[in-house]
Simulated scan of single mutants.
Amino acid sequence: MSLVIRAEAPADIPAIEALTVAAFAQAPHSSGTEQFIVNGLRRAGQLSLSLVAEDGGELVGHVALSPVRISSGATSWYGLGPISVAPARQGAGIGSRLMGAALAGLRELGAEGCVLLGDPAYYSRFGFIVRPGLVLPGVPAEYFQAFSFSGEWPVGDVSYHLAFEATD
């Protein structure tokens, strides 16, 4: 595997959309709107990082990162997601490579931290933890996790960009 992780290019947009649809098609937790979220973030200029995994010219993975708001006023926090890997390539380490590149990219941006909604058994390997006091209203607390680059932890409700409510 000659996997390359790089920033998305305009020509990648149709492939990112198709990949995202395929990656979430059978996911039990999916709303079926993940591709609309990515497109909405892009249109709103809120994709702080949009990285693709490419293998032999084929797009096999994508991760989106966007700013989040925290009610305490803490700044420089980002939300990770959606993250997509081609169904035939899941379990081959592509998601892990994307996660590493995403966290490195956020460090370069000077981020204070990152939040995500996902399986704690998977994301804990990257240092994400459930942090009491940092809340995404309306979701089970054990699935909302955070990673701090500085060791400082804000307290408050987290809100994502309105693109996360996109339905088309």
Rank of each mutant, 00 (worst) to 15 (best):
S50V: 00
G61K: 05
G40N: 04
R42T: 07
H29Q: 15
A7F: 04
S48Q: 13
G127Q: 02
Y123Q: 02
G91S: 10
I94G: 00
A102D: 02
G61C: 09
R131H: 15
E108R: 11
V60S: 07
T33P: 02
S48P: 06
I13F: 12
R43S: 15
Q35D: 12
T20K: 06
E34C: 08
G79S: 01
L136D: 02
A15S: 13
G91K: 09
R89H: 12
A104M: 06
A111F: 00
A74F: 01
L19S: 08
A111S: 07
A101D: 08
V21F: 12
V63L: 08
V130M: 03
P67L: 02
G45S: 03
S66I: 02
I37C: 07
R6P: 13
R131G: 06
E112I: 01
S30L: 06
E34V: 10
V21L: 14
G45A: 07
G40W: 00
F144H: 08
L80C: 11
E54R: 02
G127I: 04
T20Q: 03
G113Q: 01
L41W: 07
F128K: 04
S71D: 14
G95L: 07
R6T: 12
L117T: 08
A121E: 13
L51R: 11
G127P: 10
A102T: 05
H29L: 12
V4L: 15
V4T: 15
A27Y: 04
E108A: 15
S50A: 15
R89L: 14
G113K: 02
